[in-house]
């Protein structure tokens, strides 16, 4: 038989290498993801150990018997404290609805502030935070029924608005009365819902994909399948590519070019000049009937109007030593040769 198409065994033999490599890569990805799974997170993330994270606050709350629930959709907030570190990312209607349902709500720096203050140690000046005492406060100033810390902490009903989140971070939790203030704000009830909205939750209004009818979505999927099949049709080659056994071929003038570059790099103007002079002498000697190796200057001077001494100096001197002189010399040698050929 002359058939050389692969059978199942040969396909497996050829494919097991790539399959093994793929499996190893997948395994490595899983292991790395598992190892790096914890300790990550951004600012005011109760899992984060970084200075701007909030693991310390969450830990303190847990020690005081408050259950901290980190969530990205806040579906059940009834009877709990709702803490919203980024209220600006949430639809105002939804936020209002949530704070109505929650027993207490803490909003961090919503966009309703009326002025700005630099964060610094401030006195409470209100009964709400007397136990905590001085704390690092600042940020935005708000309007409200109960105002503390120069109006950077206000409470209206069950909703507390705070202008600056420094007191919740790992970095500042241990200074002044920050920890006490944070605990009093977030530990009002046994459950704390720590609401960090995710991208999916953020857009409560309908997205483009929601507006497209279902039929189109499935049709697009089917179109993708069709594209894959067409790609497979075009990608399948009719037999393997046949390589061309090319002979070893080098450009013959390459060594000469290499030598020219060497001359140039080492500025071997004098050497190049002597080579050019020798070449001109060798070319002119047979034209003038001078035996090779003998001085053709006299004969050249006789045929052209140039003085013999000048011709001899052109043909036999050493130098020039610089590059510009070399170019001039080459032109001069050419001129003499042309005159001899014409005359």
């Amino acid at each position: 038989m002359t058939a050389v198409s692969p059978d199942a065994r040969r396909i497996w033999t050829a494919a097991r290498g790539p399959v093994l490599i793929g499996a190893v890569i997948l395994l490595a990805a899983v292991v790395i993801a598992l190892l790096r799974g914890s300790g990550e997170g951004g600012a005011l993330d109760p899992r984060s150990f970084r200075p701007e994270g909030s693991h310390a606050v969450a830990d303190l709350l847990e020690q005081n018997g408050v259950r901290v629930e980190l969530t990205d959709n806040a579906s059940s907030v009834d009877g709990a404290t709702l803490f919203v570190p980024q209220p600006n990312l949430i639809d105002p209607e939804r936020l209002a609805d949530l704070s109505r349902r929650a027993s207490a709500t803490v909003l961090l720096a919503p966009a309703t502030g009326v002025a700005r203050l630099e964060p610094e140690t401030r006195q409470p000046g209100c009964p709400l935070a007397d136990r905590a005492g001085a704390a690092t406060m600042g940020g935005f100033v708000y309007e409200g029924e109960l105002r503390c810390y120069d109006s950077t902490l206000v409470r209206t009903g069950t909703v507390t608005t705070i202008g600056y989140g420094g007191i919740f971070t790992n970095r500042d939790i241990d200074s002044e009365g920050n920890a006490a203030l944070a605990l009093s704000l977030l530990g009002q009830h046994e459950r704390l819902v720590w609401y960090v909205p995710s991208a999916a939750d953020r857009s409560q209004q309908k997205s483009l994909t929601d507006l497209v009818p279902d039929g189109w979505k499935f049709a697009a999927l089917q179109l993708g399948i069709a594209v894959v099949l067409i790609a497979l049709w075009r990608a399948r080659r009719l037999g393997r590519v046949v390589p061309e056994p090319l002979p070893v071929v080098v450009r013959a003038a390459e060594t000469v070019e290499g030598r020219a570059r060497l001359y140039r790099r080492s500025h071997a103007a004098s050497h190049a000049a002597s080579v050019l002079r020798q070449a001109t002498r060798d070319r002119l000697a047979p034209l003038l009937g001078v035996p090779p190796g003998e001085d053709p200057s006299e004969e050249i001077a006789r045929r052209t109007s140039r003085p013999a001494a000048a011709v001899r100096s052109l043909l036999y001197d050493t130098g020039p030593v610089d590059d510009r002189g070399l170019v001039a010399l080459a032109a001069e040698l050419d001129a003499v040769e042309n005159e001899v050929r014409k005359g």
Binding site: A253, A260, A273, Q278
Partner: peptide, 27 residues
């Protein structure tokens, strides 16, 4: 023929150095 062409090259510095190298080969 490339060497002969190089030997006839004039004008700029690179051409003259190439001409010198070609003349050296021809010599």
């Amino acid at each position: 023929p490339a060497v002969h062409a190089m030997a006839a090259g004039r004008g700029d510095l690179e051409a003259v150095y190439s001409a010198a190298a070609a003349e050296r080969t021809l010599a």
